[in-house]
Simulated assay, not measured.
Amino acid sequence: MERQTIIGRERVDNIDIYFEYDRMDDSLPTLVLLHGFLSSSFSFRKLVPHLIKEFNVISLDLPPFGQSGKDYRYTYSFRNIAKSVVRFLAGKNIGKFSIIGHSMGGQVSLQLIQSHPDLVEHAILLAGSGYQPSYSEKMKLVSYLPFFSFGIKGYLQRSGIEKNLKNVVHDPALIDDEMRQGYIRPFMEKHDIFRALGRMLRDKEVDLLKDELRDILTPCLLVWGRHDRVVPLEIGQRLHGDLPNSELVVLEDTGHLLPEEKPAEIYQLIKQFLGTAALDFGPKEHAHE
């Protein structure tokens, strides 16, 4: 099916949230897509054409990334970002939905599920981050220095887009000019993003703890790449152990950037999961070639 996408921005909690909405059919379930750190809804561009065969799909750029706002005064904790996502969806009259969170989007998804378990029917975490502490008080104090944002910008420039992309995919042959430009463009337009990243460093809270995760009863599908160097499989295995209603699927020959690397396979997993999510998942792990 050809994409017929509505794009726009909505003002929520003193920040602009950019969105892309595919399909608006009341008879179809809705999927909300949340991307990872230093990324945007661009990372789902290969997965969405599959998903719109069966679902309404709404992709968001989480502040301060992509084309969403980068206001220095916004609170960039995952808990607050999750609250803004909920308020955005309420403004679109989206009451019940399933959520797909990649990497940092998984952390935001878990915060959202914990605070609004009645809204989320199912969760799909694609290499979802977890178990991270907040930053040290020393690092938070350093982030107040006038030139800290220039330091962040310099670090990202020195590491380079090519090196960063090779770190997140298993097969470097997947990297092309479209991918390079799609990931680097938001960091070339304004300096505001680097200032907001400094604020995000200060605002980050401790991730959900084991007891909090065990209280989440939402059916969760955890999908991991066997060769993930950013959020290693060990994190997925820990989440599987702590989320009582979860299933873990491991994809072979795959790194961290799952929506780019295996979009067709992930679509099939999501389709199958949403058809069987009411089942009681046991402690099991699948590996897919």
Rank of each mutant, 00 (worst) to 15 (best):
L208H: 04
N167I: 06
K153N: 12
K166S: 13
L201Y: 02
K153S: 12
I184N: 06
Y155L: 13
L145C: 11
L197C: 06
F194I: 03
K204L: 14
S134E: 15
F150H: 14
D211T: 09
D176I: 13
G198Y: 02
K138C: 07
G182R: 02
Y131G: 00
I152D: 01
L174M: 15
L209G: 11
V120G: 03
L201I: 15
Y135W: 13
V206M: 14
L197E: 02
D177P: 09
E162L: 11
V168T: 03
F194G: 00
A127L: 05
E121P: 04
Y155D: 10
L197N: 02
K210H: 07
L125E: 01
M179N: 06
R158F: 10
M200F: 06
S109I: 08
F147L: 15
G182Q: 06
Q181Y: 09
G105T: 02
L141A: 15
P117N: 02
G151W: 12
Q107S: 15
V108W: 04
H116T: 10
D176L: 11
Q114I: 00
D177H: 13
R202F: 03
F148G: 08
Q181P: 03
G128I: 08
G151T: 08
Y183I: 05
D192A: 03
G151P: 12
A173G: 10
E212H: 03
L156Q: 08
K163W: 09
M179L: 14
I113P: 04
L174K: 14
G128P: 02
Q107R: 14
M104C: 00
L209W: 11
D207Y: 09
D176E: 09
Q111P: 01
M104K: 04
G151C: 11
M179D: 09
M179R: 07
S134Q: 11
G160D: 13
L174G: 15
S134N: 14
V108E: 00
F147V: 10
I161E: 00
K153A: 11
A123F: 00
I184G: 04
R180M: 03
H170C: 07
G130A: 09
F148I: 02
Y183M: 08
P172C: 08
Y144R: 13
M200Y: 07
L165E: 01
A196T: 01
G182W: 03
I175G: 01
L119Y: 07
S143E: 08
K210Y: 02
F150G: 10
H170M: 09
R180K: 14
A127S: 10
Y155M: 15
V108G: 00
L126A: 03
F194P: 04
A173H: 14
L156E: 11
I100G: 04
A127E: 13
D207L: 06
P133Y: 06
G182Y: 01
D176F: 14
L208E: 03
I161R: 00
K163T: 12
I161K: 01
L174C: 10
K204I: 08
H191P: 09
L156W: 11
S159Q: 15
Q157S: 15
P117W: 05
G160P: 09
E121Q: 07
P172H: 05
